[in-house]
Design a binder for these strands. Structure first.
Lengths: 346, 346
DNA sequence: CTGAAAGCGCTTACAG
DNA sequence: CTGAAAGCGCTTACAG
C-alpha cells in the first residue's frame, strides 16, 4: 500500500502551489529559495510522506545515494565491526551501502570494482586493507574519478584521503607497559608482511625496547601472518628457545589467542609464567581465558568517519584537494586484562 | 573514461541494425526473438561493452537488481559468514546487496525496512534470526508484497519461504556421541530463549538422553542466551553442583568457549575431566584451546540458497505459492575436535 | 517475431 | 528567487 500511494515531486508541488523545480530545490537543499516557500514545501512533503525516487534522481544526473564498501580482509570480526559503523553512519546520512567481497585475485577484484562503479553507480567507495594498497586498483579508481577513502593504507599516501590510527605509538606504549611490569625478555610475533600496520607495530615494539636500553636477540622476533594458525607456530618457536621469553606481544589478537592456547598446551601458565598482549580488541580478545590485554583499535569510528568524508563532498574532486588534508588519525586505547599481570599493583 | 563512453541501448540497436525494443528483449531474456537477431544483438552488446543502466531500468518499471539483507543478530561471525555466502551468490547472479543492521528497537527496525523497500526498491529481502520472527515485521512485509526469505525462523512458518537446518537432529546426534563416549551426566546450556533454535537444540538433547534411558536431574540444565558471558555464568553453576557433569553441551560455540574458559579457571581439565561440545562451528571454535567439537551449520550455503530463491522469482507472488514449498532444510555435519575425547578410539 | 510511442520521476540547463 | 522545457536510459503496453 505504501508503494501504491507513493507521492512524487509533482504531488508535493501541487499540494504546496509551487513548481516541481522549487520542490526539487528545497528537497536537495540546492540553490536559493525563500524561507516562506521552503516551509510550505517542507510541510507538504512531510504531509504526503514524500520520499525521493533514487532511480529517477540518479537517471536525471544527480547522486545515487549509494556508497560502496570493498574488502578482501580475512578477519571476520574486523570486517563486521567496520560494517556496523559504516551502516550506522549511512543511515544517519540517508545513504545505503553496497558491500562487495572482492576475493584475492587482482583481476577479478578490479572487475568487481568497476562493476560497482558502472552498474551501481556509487557516489563513493571505501577500501579496506590490504586491498587498499594495490596500485592497480588505486590507478583504476583515480581514472574513474569516483571519490574513495582508504583505511590504514600503507603506500601511495598521496593518492586519496585515508583514515588510520597510530599503530607505531600504540605498539610502543603496550610494549613499554610490559617492560614497566618487569619483563625484559619480550617476544614479538610480526603480522602479515603484506600489511603496513605489521611493520609499524614491529617498529614501535623495537623502539620501546631501545628507549629502555634493552637489547633483544633476533630469535625473539618471529614472522606471523595475522592468522590464528601462524600464531600457534610462532609461539611454539618462541617457547622452545633455550631461555624462553616471559612475555609475548602478538601483532594482533588472533595470534595472541593462539599464543595463549599454545602456552596452555605446553603447561605454561598465562599470565604467571608468560604474559601475552595483542592488538585490535576484537571479540575474540574477551572470549578466551584469560582475556587478552590489547590495543583497542577504533574500527567502527573509522568507518563512520569514512562515510562522513565521502558524504561531505570535500573530496568530490580529488584533483582540487591538497594531499595535506588526506590524513585522518584516530585515537586508540590500551585495555588491560588478565593475560598480562600488573606487577606494580600487586 | 569508462563512464564517459558508456554504451546505451540505442547504440547497441544502431550497431546491430534493429530497434531498441529488440535489444531490450534480448538483453532481459524476455519475449520471442529470432536466433539470428539475438546473436546479432549479443555480439554488438559485447563489442560495445554494453552494461545496462540500473537506474533507468528501475525507473521504467522493471527490477532494481538490488537485494536487501536485514539483521539484528549479535553474532559477528554468524553475520559475516552469511554475508560472504550472500555476496558470492549475488555476484554470480548479477545482483547487488544492500545491507542493513536494524537495531533492536522494533519501531526503528520497521522503519528502516520500509525505507529499504521504498527508497532502495529492493527486489527481495533476507531476514536473519531473531529479527525474522517478529510478527509486526512479517506483517509489514506481507503488506508491501516484497518477496522475502527467512533464515531459521521459529514461527509464522506459512508466512514466507524459509531456510533452516535440522537443529533438533543435530543436537540429538551430538548428545548421543557424548553418551556413547561414556558420559551419562551431561549438562546443557540453553541458548537465547527468543530464538527457536534454542528450543530445538534443547529438545534434541533431551530426547537423546531419553532414548538412551538416562534420567537427568533438572539442575543439569541451565538457561543461557548465546553470549559468551552467559556461558561463563551457566558453567560456573553446573560445575558447582555436588556431583558436577562430566560433559557439557552448550547451545552454541560462544557459550562452549566460555565453558572451557571457566573450567580452566576452576582448574578442571578439558577434555580429561570435562568434555565440552558446542554448536555452529564459527571461527571461535578453532581459536580456543582445546578446539571445540561442534555442529557445523551451513551458514554460507543458507545465504546462497536464499539469494537464489529470491532471484529465481519462484516466490515473486507469494499468494500464488503453496506453503508446502516454503521449507528448505540444509544438511549439517558434526565435527569432532579436542574438546571432547573419543574414548571408543583410545 | 518486431517496432514506434509514451512515460517512469527526477534534475540540468536555460530563461526570466 | 522561481518556472517551463527537455532529457536521462530504459521498459510497458499497444500495434502490426
Amino acid at each position: 500500500m505504501a508503494l501504491a500511494k507513493r507521492a512524487r515531486i509533482k504531488d508535493v508541488a501541487e499540494h504546496s502551489g509551487v513548481s516541481m523545480m522549487t520542490v526539487s530545490r528545497v528537497l536537495s537543499n540546492v540553490g536559493k529559495v525563500s524561507d516562506k516557500t521552503r516551509q510550505l514545501v517542507l510541510s507538504a512533503a512531510q504531509q504526503l510522506n514524500y520520499r525521493p525516487n533514487v532511480a529517477a534522481r540518479r537517471l536525471a544526473g544527480s547522486k545515487s545515494f549509494f556508497l560502496g564498501l570493498v574488502y578482501n580482509n580475512p578477519s571476520a570480526s574486523y570486517v563486521s565491526q567496520f560494517l556496523l559503523g559504516a551502516l550506522k553512519a549511512c543511515r544517519a546520512q540517508g545513504y545505503h551501502l553496497v558491500v562487495d567481497e572482492s576475493g584475492d585475485e587482482l583481476e577479478k577484484c578490479i572487475n568487481s570494482i568497476s562493476e560497482l562503479i558502472e552498474v551501481t553507480q556509487v557516489d563513493g567507495l571505501i577500501l579496506l586493507p590490504p586491498l587498499c594498497d594495490e596500485p592497480k586498483i588505486i590507478a583504476a579508481l583515480q581514472e574513474s574519478s569516483v571519490p574513495f577513502v582508504r583505511i590504514s593504507p600503507d603506500n601511495n599516501l598521496n593518492a586519496s584521503p585515508y583514515i588510520c590510527m597510530d599503530d607505531y605509538q600504540a605498539a610502543f606504549e603496550i610494549t613499554e607497559r610490559l617492560i614497566n611490569q618487569g619483563h625484559s625478555l619480550v617476544g614479538h610475533i610480526i603480522g602479515d608482511p603484506n600489511q603496513g600496520v605489521s611493520r609499524l607495530r614491529y617498529q614501535g615494539f623495537l623502539d620501546a625496547l631501545r628507549s629502555n636500553q634493552i637489547n633483544l636477540p633476533p630469535e625473539y622476533i618471529v614472522q606471523g601472518n595475522f592468522t590464528y594458525k601462524s600464531g600457534l607456530t610462532a609461539t611454539a618457536q618462541l617457547l622452545s628457545l633455550p631461555v624462553p621469553p616471559t612475555a609475548i606481544f602478538a601483532g594482533n589478537d588472533d595470534m595472541a589467542a593462539a599464543a595463549i592456547s599454545k602456552a596452555h598446551s605446553m603447561q605454561i601458565d598465562v599470565p604467571e609464567k608468560l604474559a601475552v598482549v595483542g592488538f585490535d580488541d576484537i571479540q575474540l580478545a574477551t572470549s578466551v581465558w584469560p582475556q587478552i590485554t590489547t590495543v583497542k583499535q577504533p574500527i567502527a569510528e573509522m568507518a563512520e568517519l569514512a562515510i562522513e568524508m565521502l558524504v561531505s563532498g570535500k573530496f568530490a574532486d580529488i584533483t582540487k584537494c591538497s594531499p595535506q588534508n588526506f590524513r585522518h588519525v584516530l585515537d586508540f586505547n590500551i585495555i588491560e586484562r588478565e593475560s598480562s599481570s600488573r606487577d606494580e599493583n600487586k
